[in-house]
């Protein structure tokens, strides 16, 4: 069984890209197009890693993080921020890593692997 990664991004193409990328490297994937959907999946699926976009309609990545962090069950799950906004390093308190868009696929996969290894 591969590790589960929850991909949260409002752009369908970006979600599809990340699904393929993670699947090709032995991860199991699930996606959400905003923070609300993300929270639901978090509770149902208990992922090992989350990639989080910051600027999304409905609920922002920051709001998602705040809600998730309040729950002790989930606040240890590593988060990788993937966003094109300026000031993204300030949006979330303790992300495992931050990636600018477009991403460096090799580096992302390496980081994702480290994140799940460290946490298990």
């Amino acid at each position: 069984m591969g590790k589960k990664v929850l991909i949260i991004d409002d752009e369908e193409d970006i979600r599809n890209f990340l699904i393929e990328l993670f699947k090709d490297n032995g991860f199991e994937t699930m996606t959400a197009s905003d923070g609300i959907e993300g929270l639901k999946l978090l509770k149902d699926e208990k992922p090992d890693l989350i990639t989080l976009d910051l600027q999304m309609p409905n609920d922002t990545g920051t709001a998602f993080y705040r809600k998730m962090h309040r729950d002790e069950q989930f606040n240890k799950i590593p988060i990788i921020v993937i966003s094109g906004v300026a000031g993204k390093h300030l949006a979330i308190k303790k992300p495992f890593a931050i990636f600018d868009k477009p991403i460096d696929a090799t580096a992302l996969l390496e980081t994702a692997q480290n994140a799940v290894d460290e946490n298990s």
Binding site: E11, D13, I14, L18, E20, P102
Partner: peptide, 8 residues
């Protein structure tokens, strides 16, 4: 965002 879409 578009660049990342193209990258995908």
């Amino acid at each position: 965002n578009m660049l990342m879409g193209l990258e995908g």
